[in-house]
Amino acid sequence: MSQTKKAVVFLISFFITLFATSLSFQFIAPLVIGLEQSAIFNIVSPLISTIALLIFIILQALIKYMFNRRALVSNANLVSANISKFGIKERLLPYAFFLLIYFIPLLRGMIFDYTFMIRILLFIGSVVIVEILLRISNNRTKIFFQRNGFLITGFDARAEIPFGMNTIINNDSGFYSYKDIKEYLVFPDRIELKLINDTGKIVFMANGELKRQFTGLMVQHKIPVKKVSE
């Protein structure tokens, strides 16, 4: 997906999340006024921030799919495959935000009581929820090879900030022309596509039949194969 589209997805997701969080806070504010300071600091504040982050991640995934849906339904899919497993790079951003939410405020002072343990449990629960989201995302994000190019789409819950950051990740969602492929490598269990201008790579799982179909497409578009031993 182009940086412009990523920026649009980010801004739409951000402002909807901001609006939803502000609206929700107006409803829950009367309920938390009477709570102890430790409960607000260790439970309410990080919980609201966590919910906002999860809403943002889910919104990004849904909006990215809406952007890609037209290309998915308007073109015939010749071959499809599951993308490779997400690595640590795909997990860094949400986990970094959780560290900011749950631990950076503690540098200004800590309130040690039962609410502090709830804060730690909320952190662990947040990590588990994001891990589940990423696993679902990994299973539901696929690569579709079409006549004029290939599309990576699905419920892609990888969080992205496309402003001033290196956002090159493997299997980035979006439509690619076959001209975007520099070369490809065939491994026993997978195929890797190296993109031009070092803009990342596409990795998907492949068995014998899928390799045969894919190789035929590459020969048709005159894309060179690179030996794995090189």
Rank of each mutant, 00 (worst) to 15 (best):
L18K: 03
S38I: 06
I12N: 01
S45H: 05
V130N: 11
I143E: 07
I88R: 06
K226H: 11
N68K: 07
S24H: 03
S137I: 02
L195K: 14
S22I: 09
I101Q: 06
F15K: 03
D113P: 01
S137G: 12
N75M: 04
S24G: 15
L217W: 05
L78P: 01
M66G: 10
I40L: 11
S229T: 10
G164A: 04
R108A: 15
E36Q: 10
F214W: 04
D198S: 14
N207M: 06
A52M: 10
L23W: 13
I28Y: 13
L53V: 05
E192A: 15
P224M: 11
L106N: 14
F14M: 13
G154E: 00
I120Y: 09
F56W: 10
R158T: 09
F19E: 09
L217H: 08
S38Y: 13
A96E: 10
V228F: 04
P162H: 01
P94K: 09
T153K: 01
Y176W: 02
I83D: 04
V73M: 07
Q60S: 06
G174I: 00
N166T: 01
G216I: 01
T199V: 00
P30K: 07
L106M: 15
F41C: 00
F98I: 07
K179A: 15
F163Y: 14
G208C: 02
V32L: 07
Y102W: 07
L31T: 07
S229E: 14
F25Q: 12
L151Q: 00
N75T: 05
S38W: 11
R119W: 09
F123T: 10
R212S: 10
Y176C: 02
A76W: 00
L72Q: 10
F145R: 06
K222C: 05
E36P: 03
I63W: 04
V130Y: 15
R70H: 14
I28T: 06
